[in-house]
Amino acid sequence: MWDNLQLLFVWAPIINVQVILDGIFVGAVFALSAYGLALVWGVMNIKNLAQGDFVIMGGYLAFALHQMHVPLVLILLIVMPLMFIFGWIIYVVMIRRIIDQDMFVSLLATFGLSLLLQQVINLIFGPEVQTIDMEMPVYDAFDNMVTVPSSKIVTLVLAGVIAVAVVLFMKRSRAGQAIRATAQDPRAARVLGIDIDRVYAFTFAFNAALCGAAGVLVSIIWVIQPFYGITYSVRSFAIVTAAGLGNLPAVIGAGFGIGLFEKYTGAILGTAYEVAAPVCILLLVLIYRQIQMRRNRQVVR
């Protein structure tokens, strides 16, 4: 660990650039799936444990399309609607029935969905680790000390475009307004003529589409395997806990933050601790919140 710190800050500070860049690239992808989770959580109070598996499912759809030589942008345009339809079906079949139940029912149901998705993906695609090799050029700088694959730049740009589109959609469109109104007060929204059931279905489907997009990006920059979903679920939960519900800029900020924290943890303590990093953040945030709440807590006499 001491060696690693010296390496980072004394011997070869230039590799900080690489670590920071990597953190930003992964943060962008995390932010996408985390925002979907925040939406579903905020609007319908469903804690979706299958979030990571939606991401992996999107990744495998992209992988399948890539095998058919579909170009990247088209892959994204096909996977998102496909995942949207899938999300809608899952809502109608399952989520609608658990939405009024207590928290444990939603946790159990989505955990079951997560297991089901893993196994189905495993049955169809097999357990091999897969990746989409776009065979795009890799840029390097500082005497090859910093390398940036163009696939990661493309990923970042796509994530940015999707994020901006989502913000505009939520702010400007009628559907976005309806979602925000339902999140604030479902009863009042219903009184004002909003079809809550439709809004819920749309939100859940929209979340699946966002996860699908994240999955496409993950399959391009990393590797995917049917059982890797859980790490994305954990990261999404950590980000949402840190950022709060329904606040896209905060979610993006937290996404980048966790990406960077993860990469620095990896550089200093070793790659094995990278996955542990978001869980630590989750813990710290919960402890901080607890202390913050204690200050406001009063005893009723």
Partner: peptide, 14 residues
């Protein structure tokens, strides 16, 4: 659950 070992490889390069 390894899907990214870029930090290790960054150190290797340095």
């Amino acid at each position: 659950d390894l899907s990214d070992m870029s930090t290790t490889l960054t150190k290797v390069k340095a």
